[in-house]
Simulated assay, not measured.
Amino acid sequence: MSKEKDDNYWRDKLTPEEFHVCREGGTERPFSGEHWNTFEDGAYRCRCCGEVLFESESKFDAGCGWPSFDAEAREGVVEEHQDNSLGMQRTEIVCANCGCHLGHVFPDGPTDTGLRYCVNSLSVTLDPEDSNEHGEGEGG
């Protein structure tokens, strides 16, 4: 499973900025990522393992400067962990397959889910060919 791959593997696969966000839990500056203001059809895949995490249908403009979604692509593809860093209590979200840091989830979403998955653009890639197909990642 991808969670067992070491930092050297990820350093070879990711840019330094991607490594900082995806493997060290960093955050990109708001309004700086490639997907914060993108509303094309497709699936948002984990940058590290390729797992489909979010669908374009669940994306909305939260005005926060990061891509925001109201639901994961399917139950269980995103894990939640308590994050008490920076003097705040938040819920971190990571890819369930490989442990890639995605961002945080907040209970202030505008739809019936009531959720806002606030995701770093560096943590995901947009696959326009995979709209509504819930594809599988590399898994390994």
Rank of each mutant, 00 (worst) to 15 (best):
F54G: 03
L14V: 08
R47A: 14
A73T: 07
D7Q: 12
T27V: 01
R47F: 04
C64D: 11
A43M: 04
T27S: 12
D112F: 11
S2R: 11
S123Q: 08
H81C: 03
C64I: 10
D41M: 12
Y9T: 02
T111N: 08
D83R: 00
V77T: 04
L102M: 12
P67D: 11
F106G: 02
S121F: 13
D6H: 08
E136R: 14
K13M: 13
V105D: 09
F39C: 06
G109N: 03
D108A: 00
R29M: 11
N132V: 07
F54M: 07
R47N: 14
E28S: 12
H81E: 13
V78S: 04
D108M: 06
G99H: 04
T113M: 07
D7N: 15
E92W: 01
E72K: 04
C48T: 11
C46T: 12
R74C: 10
V21M: 05
D6I: 08
C95E: 05
G25W: 00
R23C: 00
V105E: 08
W66F: 12
G33P: 01
C118F: 03
R74G: 02
G140I: 13
E79G: 07
K13C: 05
E4W: 07
K5N: 13
E133Y: 03
G140H: 15
E17R: 14
L122F: 12
E55D: 15
E40H: 10
E55L: 14
S123E: 06
D130N: 15
G109I: 06
S32F: 05
L14R: 05
L115A: 10
G76A: 10
A71T: 03
E72Y: 05
E18Y: 07
F54W: 04
Q89P: 02
Q89A: 14
C98D: 09
S2E: 14
E51M: 01
G42S: 05
F19G: 00
L102K: 07
F31T: 03
R11C: 00
N37I: 10
H20F: 12
C64G: 09
V21Q: 04
M88A: 09
E4G: 10
S68K: 06
V78P: 03
I93Y: 12
D108W: 09
G99I: 08
C64S: 15
E34Y: 05
N37F: 09
S131Q: 14
S85L: 06
D83N: 00
E133G: 06
E51C: 00
H20G: 04
E138D: 14
H134P: 00
R90E: 11
E55T: 07
